[in-house]
Nucleic acid binder design. Structure first.
Lengths: 144, 144
DNA sequence: GAGGATGGTCAGGGAACCTTACTATTCCTC
DNA sequence: GAGGAATAGTAAGGTTCCCTGACCATCCTC
């Protein structure tokens, strides 16, 4: 409404979205048809596999929503579902071939954007920023 | 996929969403039925009025989407549309009574959350964080 | 004053996400 | 162990969000 742009929440938002946009643009260029919502979930799939419920909690959507997104990602070869050997009710969602390709493509983009930020802020400030954000996560990420 | 949580983009996201969630929860408690998408737009309405096209650009949605959200906000008394005296095509979207109430309610929540963050990080680090984010905005907010 | 740019709306459709309800499996307790 | 509670996930149906494409009105420029 009139938070004069100094609202810290909003300040966090701009670079976050810039990063997201950049990564998604590169993926799209390379022929990866991944929607924003799918990418947000995909990003959280652990290399060794994640449970649907965990993914839903981290992305803060219902497990139904997460389930639907995983369906789509699975159909396009980004992830696969395998039974969880330690719990018969559960299934593990693991990165599949296409998902690994996308991750390999995304990593250098993230690095490039971070390098740009470092160039703009200076090494020291960038390091402080990252340290502050990491500590902030302790109290703002219920899932940390 | 496996960015080990040290992706700066993701680090920015956690506190951003924490702030958003807190503010929205207070608004909901106070009887404001504002959806996330509506709030994101509402937040950007300038006290003196904003054009739809500007709001859409800032929120990075199409003007059609923005127009629809403004319709909803207008119907519930959060904003009003008035003709732009300086441009016959345009109309200014201004905060209305309910919107001002919501803003008055949101401001102390933002302040409280920022105070919590300051308490966790320390005055100095918090100041550095805000300064860094402000400078980062120069290169990440196409609208700055 | 014609042509192009800009501000905004209308129509239609797809994606995302929610609530409620359900099955299957596991954990816990007595 | 044998209930019952909790947990992992799916199913169905509806709302919200947001997009593309097409269109009208007004402004600006030459």
């Amino acid at each position: 409404m009139d938070e004069p742009a100094q609202n810290t929440g909003l300040l966090l938002f701009y670079p976050y979205r810039a990063m997201e946009t950049r990564v998604l643009a590169v993926l799209a260029e390379a022929g990866h048809e991944v929607t924003l919502a799918q990418a947000r979930l995909l990003q959280r799939v652990a290399p060794g596999g994640s449970r649907l419920t965990d993914l839903a909690a981290q992305a803060q959507v219902t497990k139904q929503s997460a389930g639907s997104l995983v369906d789509q990602l699975e159909a396009r070869g980004y992830v696969e579902r395998v039974p969880d050997p330690r719990d018969g009710r559960a299934r593990l969602i693991r990165p599949a071939r296409r998902g690994l390709e996308a991750a390999a493509l995304a990593a250098p983009v993230v690095a490039a954007v971070e390098a740009e930020w470092t160039a703009h802020l200076g090494e020291e400030t960038m390091a402080t920023l990252r340290a502050a954000l990491t500590r902030l996560r302790e109290i703002t990420d219920p899932w940390a």
